[in-house]
Design a protein around this nucleic acid. Structure first.
Length: 804
RNA sequence: GCCGAAGUGGCGGAAUUGGUAGACGCGCUGGUCUCAAAAACCAGUGAGGUUCAUCCCUCAUGCCGGUUCAACUCCGGCCUUCGGCACCA
């Protein structure tokens, strides 16, 4: 029975670390490393084992860097402002301020129990005026540069959350927070001009050591697409419809134009005799939800609006239609329809009996006579396209675009799916937008010296749903003097999206107490970009794109010397329980607390890593942790039994294993493969457990290698072995490549590729000798008997293979 | 529909990058200890066959085929699951 008492040991070392300020970061250190966690929004339920999994990984990684002699900045903070925090408070029926305070205390307790090496003196809280003052300051800098602006636009309105949402926060037509269906609402809204950085955001992905999956998601989201902008003009009037296409080569096959129902030209171009029909159609289409409208099964609908334009390449008169299969938010909200070469246009043309003209045919084929059964969407060779006939598609795109450009009827264009970031929210619990609206002066930014614009304390903070935030009701907040003219004015009452708060927090940690400026440039340039960022895949687009944008914008303002915030990103897998993502509504949330109480935090830490590959999703198993606890008990007992060991190891086999383990663990750590590192340590400790007298060096290595994973246990064992310093001051042991190779190795013997025996040989055995020995094996003899050996294969250190 | 990842024992998962498949752990079975149980410890544990037994043989990494002395690993073709995007012009 082991005397391992994790409860006692863990408290003891946590206290010692605190008393000695062991986690205090020396911010002016030269050999430094910045390992960052995605800071959580504090909710009442506390952290579950899924959150822990990421925090454990980053803590293990930070400790690993620390034991290698780096000064590690590994800070933690709280994303305490915003919708999620407020919703949680409303649900509980308490004020967000109270709820946030309690939740933070609880989170902090849990993280301290975890034994994490956070330097709490650097913690940030995004709902604290000392923090959001600078969020507002960033807003003003963006405003100055024209990167923050206000405009009226149809926005995503979440009827349940009673606020507008950014495009990134709408998933399949639903709010990403509460899953309720999103509608459109015309409101005056604040935007950040992230589209200015679209190209940079795509191009700079190349420089980042991020999971390919995340990069792809960002690329798709930004959706850069190179094509041609084509102008279609009316015959007589000043009518002009712009269209974006990636297939200028099919322009001769364009037989009609389609506008989105929301397109501003619909009203203007609809002729009186079509007005009623068009109005009805548009009204219905606009009312339809995104989900209904984008359903692929739906049959195409649309109406002719009575007007015509001219196809610029062949002067054909073509009709304008309005149809809901064209999205107002992509491109120009209008498309040139080429039924022969676009499946959607094809279906539409069939239904409404519009002409289908083939202008591209597969290479080497001529035009089909019987007509098309479906659109040919591939590249090919042009036919019936005037001077461009016989060109291949790619060439034709270039040539036709050039031709249009010359005639001033079109040009090369890059289109993006990305839209500007809608940052205003009609909610209480967020950073107030530092703008004053004056009748005389218009929009006036709050002078920097007047920051922060403090969020007033409000009892009735619930969202009203009238399109304005609850702050609109607070007279002494709203009514102000205009900073410019001193006249009567009103404050902006919307607050900022939570993602604004979290788009820059990592910049604040190195200079968290600065009251004069957002940060000292020198300090931030010293520590950033972040060396290793660890977090969940759910932020692949949202936070990770916003943070990159803000960093780029601040970089362009010369406030930073870098343009990418996070060089390395590791996205840990999610932890499932009972086959599903942990969620309160599914009642399958596993809290680490009870396991920490029962088995100790070191067991939980180690088990979180042992569950499976760090980047993969995994299933939590209550029983699994028992195995980890047994292992730690064995390690404890092993050291306890041998604390007076003075000898150096003399066992050759163990010496080899020692170096093999050193190599394996170091390599696995580098690759975030903590699960196999632990397996290797188990094998190593199992091997030691079989011996009576164990060399001291073997034991010390076990303790050190375990230290990043089980810091409390390692400190205790390190002390038991007679050391006075923390184990993290010990040097990380290095392996000797010469000692990894075993003296005696086992060769496999195969006959026709099948294993028929093994033979023990010296590692340097010659091919001749190995084959001779292999042939002597009884079982192998059986298979070679009476047969001619056609081929003998020898792979050094591996096997001998006979072909008969 | 497009893009990406993954399919290995009862379970979580290993496999030196083409070289002894199933490491490590969970679970299970048997044993030791105990009045008993738990805990702990020891042994066994892919399926099937053969043997008194050690041995040994056959099959086996989603499915079908290929390359190779040798394939979880490489190539071609499918199937399934998960994730992302999606009337994107």
């Amino acid at each position: 029975m082991s005397n391992y008492n994790p409860g006692k040991i863990e408290k003891k070392w946590q206290r010692k670390w605190q008393e000695t300020n062991a986690n205090k970061v020396n911010l002016s250190a030269k050999k430094k490393y910045y390992c960052l966690d995605m800071f959580p929004y504090p909710s009442g339920e506390g952290l579950h084992v899924g959150h822990w999994s990421g925090y454990v990984m980053s803590d293990v990684w930070s400790r690993y860097k620390k034991i290698q002699g780096y000064e590690v900045l590994h800070p933690m903070g709280f994303d305490a402002f915003g919708l999620p925090a407020e919703n949680a408070a409303i649900e509980k029926g308490v004020h967000p301020k109270e709820n946030t305070k309690e939740s933070i205390a609880n989170f902090k307790r849990q993280l301290e129990e975890m034994g994490s090496m956070y330097d709490w003196s650097l913690a940030v809280n995004s709902s604290d005026p000392s923090y959001y003052k600078w969020t507002q300051w960033i807003f003003l800098q963006l405003y100055k540069k024209g990167l923050a602006y206000r405009k009226e636009a149809p926005a995503n309105w979440g009827p349940s959350c009673k606020t507008v949402l950014a495009n990134e926060q709408v998933v399949e037509g639903k709010c990403h927070r509460c899953d309720s269906e999103v509608t459109k609402k015309n409101l005056k809204q604040w935007f950040f001009k992230i589209t200015d950085y679209a190209d940079e955001l795509v191009d700079d992905l190349e420089k980042l050591d991020w999971p390919e999956r995340v990069k792809t998601m960002q690329r798709n989201w930004i959706g850069r697409s190179e094509g041609t902008l084509v102008e279609f003009k009316g015959q007589s009037s000043k009518v002009k419809v712009d269209v974006f296409t990636t297939r200028a080569d099919t322009l001769f096959g364009c037989t009609y134009l389609v506008l989105a129902p929301e397109h501003p030209l619909v009203k203007k171009l609809t002729t009186t005799d079509h007005k009623k029909e068009v109005d009805n159609y548009c009204k219905k289409a606009i009312k339809e939800s995104e989900i209904e409208r984008t359903s692929l099964e739906k049959e195409k609908t649309g109406v002719f609006i009575g007007s015509y334009v001219v196809n610029p390449v062949n002067n054909q008169k073509i009709p304008i239609w309005v149809a809901d299969y064209v999205m107002s938010t992509y491109g120009t909200g209008a498309v040139m329809a080429v039924p022969a070469h676009d499946q959607r246009d094809f279906e539409f043309a069939k239904k409404f009996k519009l002409p289908i003209i083939e202008t591209v045919v597969p290479k080497g084929k001529s035009k089909g006579k019987s007509g098309l059964k479906e659109a040919f969407v591939g590249y090919g060779e042009l036919v019936g396209s005037g001077e461009f006939s016989n060109l291949d598609s790619k060439n034709a795109i270039k040539k036709i675009t050039q031709w249009l450009n010359k005639k001033k009827l079109g040009k090369e264009t890059i289109n993006y799916k990305l839209h500007d970031w809608l940052i205003s929210r009609q909610r209480y619990w967020g950073t107030p937008i530092p703008i004053v609206h004056c009748k005389k002066c218009g929009e006036v930014p709050v002078p920097e010296k007047d920051l922060p614009v403090e969020l007033p304390e409000l009892d009735d903070f619930k969202p009203t749903g009238d399109g304005r935030s609850p702050l609109a009701k607070v007279e002494n907040f709203v009514k102000v003097k205009c900073p410019k003219c001193g006249g009567k004015a009103e404050r902006e009452t919307d607050t900022m999206d939570t993602f604004v708060d979290s788009s820059w927090y990592f910049l604040r940690y190195p200079d968290v107490d600065n009251k004069k400026e957002i940060f000292e440039k020198q300090k931030v340039d010293h520590w950033l970009p972040v060396d290793q960022y660890v977090g969940g895949i759910e932020h692949a687009i949202l936070h990770l794109m916003y943070a990159r944008f803000i960093t780029k914008a601040l970089g362009d303002m010369k406030l930073l010397d870098f343009h990418e915030p996070f060089l390395n990103l590791f996205t840990q897998g999610m932890v499932y329980y009972k086959g599903a993502k942990m969620s309160k509504s599914k009642r399958n949330v596993v809290s680490p607390d009870e396991f920490v109480r029962k088995y100790g935090t070191d067991s939980v830490r180690a088990y979180e890593l042992f569950m499976g590959p760090a980047e993969q999703d995994k299933e939590w198993a209550d029983r699994g942790i028992v195995g980890m606890h047994r292992f730690l008990q064995k390690v404890y007992a092993l050291i306890e039994k041998n604390t007076d060991s003075k000898v150096k190891n003399s066992d050759k086999k163990l010496e080899t294993l020692k170096h093999k383990t050193l190599k394996k663990v170091a390599e696995d750590f580098e690759d975030f493969q903590f699960n196999t590192a632990l397996s290797a340590l188990m094998e190593y400790s199992n091997a030691l457990g079989k011996k009576d007298k164990i060399g001291r060096d073997l034991l010390e290595i076990l303790v050190i290698l375990l230290a990043p994973i089980t810091p409390h246990l390692s400190e205790e064992l390190w002390e038991m072995l007679g050391h006075r310093e923390f184990v993290f001051k010990a040097p990380w042991p290095k392996f000797d490549p010469k000692l990894i190779q075993e003296e005696i190795i086992t060769l496999a013997i195969q006959v026709n590729g099948k294993l028929r025996g093994t033979v023990e040989v010296n590692k340097d055995v010659s091919e001749k000798e190995a084959i001779k020995l292999a042939k002597e094996n009884q079982n192998v003899k059986k298979f070679l008997k009476g047969k001619e050996v056609k081929k003998e294969i020898f792979v050094k250190g591996r096997l001998v293979s006979f072909v008969v």
